[in-house]
Amino acid sequence: MKYPPSLVALIRELSRLPGIGPKSAQRLAFHLFEQPAEDIERLSAALLAAKSELHTCPVCFNITDAELCDVCSDPSRDQNLICVVEEPGDVIALERSGEYQGLYHVLHGVLSPMNGVGPEQLHIKELLPRAREGLEVILATGTTVEGDATALYLQRLLEPLGAEVSRIAYGLQVGSALEYADEVTLGRALLGRQKIRG
């Protein structure tokens, strides 16, 4: 049996999406086949609209459909605080935490020479002009070796520019028992212990 080319094409395009293997792509294709035409058209239009309307903010490299992103253009955000993250998705994660009111800077990656990523592949040169006296830069790259290396690299560049530089905390995730934490994390959690709030 030969499959209809348009079915084959759809399965191939779907299986290019991350996290969707060939079996899931096939299941998705059959599911889509059963949906009303309007639903398919809406998904297709959403794809095209997102691609044509979205771009990165020229200041912080967050995703936006306006000239400046919603954070950069909001004067009520704390202008003395910039949180540096790896990816646009991290902005959403931090916003959802509800604990952050400052600005962002999205690097779009981390330093990883073995993957061909050096400083010039990231939005680092655009971060430097934002640094100044009175600014705190929170380095919120991941807690991997690459994330640490990127944070240390940025710290060396930012401190001479007068900015205060801090690193997001390492430690136990909330809701965890000690026995489920790995040794590296436990060691960091001990070193990073803080005076308790009474």
Binding site: P113, V145, D148, A149, L152, D182, E183, V184
Partner: peptide, 25 residues
């Protein structure tokens, strides 16, 4: 199971990190 037997945190330092990458690659 995975357990740490040794780490070299100084490999994250900017003047050392790229050399560690070279050797590993």
């Amino acid at each position: 199971q995975a357990s740490l037997e040794g780490a070299l945190p100084r490999l994250a330092l900017p003047e050392r990190h790229p050399y560690a990458h070279l050797l590993a690659e």
